[in-house]
Deep mutational scan, measured.
Amino acid sequence: VTVHVNRYTYHFDNPEEAEKFAREMAKRLNMTVEIHGNTLKVE
């Protein structure tokens, strides 16, 4: 599972951890999480 935050890319083996990380980053940056299959984008 890949998480994109701005120009950074993070890889996770565990989808739940990836989503938790993405949501935490989105909250911190006041952004939203978009899910595209195995890719989560924080925008």
Rank of each mutant, 00 (worst) to 15 (best):
V1G: 02
V1W: 15
V1I: 12
V1E: 01
T2A: 05
V3N: 02
V3E: 01
V3F: 00
V3H: 01
H4G: 02
H4Y: 04
V5T: 03
V5F: 10
N6L: 14
N6S: 10
N6A: 08
N6Y: 12
R7I: 09
R7N: 15
R7V: 06
Y8P: 01
Y8G: 06
T9Q: 12
T9V: 14
T9N: 06
T9F: 11
Y10A: 02
Y10E: 02
H11D: 04
H11Y: 14
H11A: 04
H11F: 13
F12E: 00
F12D: 00
D13E: 10
D13S: 10
D13G: 06
D13L: 08
D13W: 09
N14F: 07
N14I: 08
N14Q: 06
P15Q: 13
P15M: 15
P15Y: 15
E16N: 09
E16F: 11
E17G: 03
E17H: 07
E17L: 11
E17S: 08
E17Y: 06
A18K: 00
A18F: 02
A18P: 00
E19K: 08
E19T: 07
E19G: 05
E19H: 13
E19M: 15
K20Q: 11
K20S: 11
K20M: 10
F21E: 00
F21Q: 00
A22E: 01
A22S: 02
R23S: 08
R23W: 14
R23H: 12
E24L: 11
E24T: 08
E24D: 11
E24H: 09
M25N: 02
A26D: 02
A26C: 04
K27C: 14
R28P: 01
R28A: 10
L29V: 03
L29S: 04
N30V: 03
N30K: 08
N30P: 01
M31T: 13
M31L: 12
T32F: 08
T32E: 06
T32R: 12
T32P: 04
V33I: 09
E34I: 15
E34C: 13
E34M: 13
I35H: 09
I35C: 12
H36P: 01
H36K: 10
H36E: 10
H36L: 11
G37P: 05
G37A: 04
N38H: 05
T39P: 03
T39H: 13
L40V: 14
K41E: 08
V42L: 12
V42S: 04
E43F: 15
E43Y: 14
E43R: 14
E43H: 13
E43G: 15
E43V: 15
